[in-house]
Amino acid sequence: MICAVLAGCQAVPGEGPLTADIKADAGQSPVQIGRIDAAVFDIVKVDNRTAKLVSDYVVTALNRRFGIGGGAGRAVIGVGDQLKISIFEAGADGLFSTSDSKQTNLDVVVQQDGTAAIPYVGTVRFVGKTLEEARQAILTALKSRAVEPDVIVTSVNTASRKVTVSGAVGNSSQVPLGLVGDKITDVIANAGGPTGQPYETYITLVRGRKTGTALLSSVIDHPNENIYVQPGDQIFVARDPRTFTLLGAVKGNARVNFGASDLNLLEAVALGGGGNDAAIDAKGYFLFRYEEPDVVMSLLGTQRFNELLGKGMKPDRVGRYPIVYSFDMTHPDSLLVGQTFPVKNRDVIYASRHKAVDLGKFLTLIGTPLGIASQGAGVAYSVERIGN
């Protein structure tokens, strides 16, 4: 009888999967699940190690991808740069001096082949040289031609040393880089600054074939994330109020705004009013996320990661992989661990209902008809007695 009741529970309408259902599908291929279109994922338990690994990665996304380097690097001349070259001579009647002036100023633009022409010197290669190296090259060529020459090379317009900043900033523009080097916040400030709050503003840096995205508040709070930009980088600033979705056996199913610079798992659940005491499975809190591949491999190990790829695990359009974090609220330390596990934009937090809820529904469904039948039998019996 009990087995029949439990089997019947499977046919009861429910609000999402049970804890056992989610765990049963984890790590299974679509064939094993019996659905050819099923997404392949794995479950990771949220504990101290998991929370620290995920938290550390969130605050070092740009540094991991691009590296902060050893500083600004060498500021070199590039194609399109405009230079002012001042040539001095000791004599009054030299190649570049007269009785009125002992200097000549030349404005040159570095051509596509990386060179520019200097009178009485010829073609000089500038690309890849610092201003001092360019100065020495011109000076060396003039020593046998001019009278005690000296040279000053000044950068007027650094067309090759610019970063494009666009999006939610005061003035989308190409920002020239200084000789001492500029960081992300420097070039954003030079473009008029962000138009939104740091905790809802995302920065995407494109460098060659690499792309990295980080929250502006994370860049501000963690100096290692405020990396040096390089000539040709593209920075896109987007205002996107961060939200997460809360579903399942909670007091309020909704899409919720962060409303703060950061949010942990416990705070996110509390924003939805907490779990429904009459229905919640305290062992069945799950956070569904598409996670960075580095994090997934660190959590699962390379062997398990490759195994899941073989079963059909697919990345999203930006290369992140599906992962489900499991959180057990029956453990006392969950109130500590939950404070250190960061919630990210577009996360889905699902609180599973307890299996007893389905059992109660099933008993209600089968009990209601029986009650009606019993009442009907009683009425028939009474009528029979009155008739007699």
Rank of each mutant, 00 (worst) to 15 (best):
T211R: 07
V269I: 15
V379D: 08
I87Q: 05
A268R: 06
P198K: 10
A238W: 04
I372D: 01
K210R: 09
A20S: 15
S382H: 08
I280T: 10
S144P: 01
A20L: 09
L6V: 08
G94D: 00
E292V: 02
A278D: 14
D358S: 15
D333H: 05
I77Y: 03
D150Y: 02
T368S: 10
I188Q: 05
P241E: 07
R135K: 13
L335D: 08
D100M: 04
V318N: 13
D100I: 03
G301P: 03
T213F: 03
A61P: 11
D56G: 10
T123M: 15
A214I: 12
T204V: 04
G16V: 03
I366N: 00
D113E: 11
S55L: 09
G167H: 14
S144I: 04
G80R: 11
D56C: 08
K143L: 06
L247F: 04
V40N: 02
L336Y: 05
G284I: 09
V163W: 01
T213Y: 04
M329W: 09
S326L: 12
Q32W: 00
I36F: 02
P342W: 06
I118F: 14
G338P: 03
N48S: 08
V40C: 03
I33L: 11
N345P: 01
A146C: 04
L246A: 02
Q230F: 01
L265Q: 08
S166R: 03
E148W: 00
T104W: 07
Y381E: 04
S160Q: 07
D182G: 00
N171G: 09
D316L: 04
F126W: 12
M329E: 12
S374C: 07
Y381N: 03
Q82A: 13
V31I: 12
D56S: 14
T211E: 06
G78I: 04
G78M: 03
F327T: 13
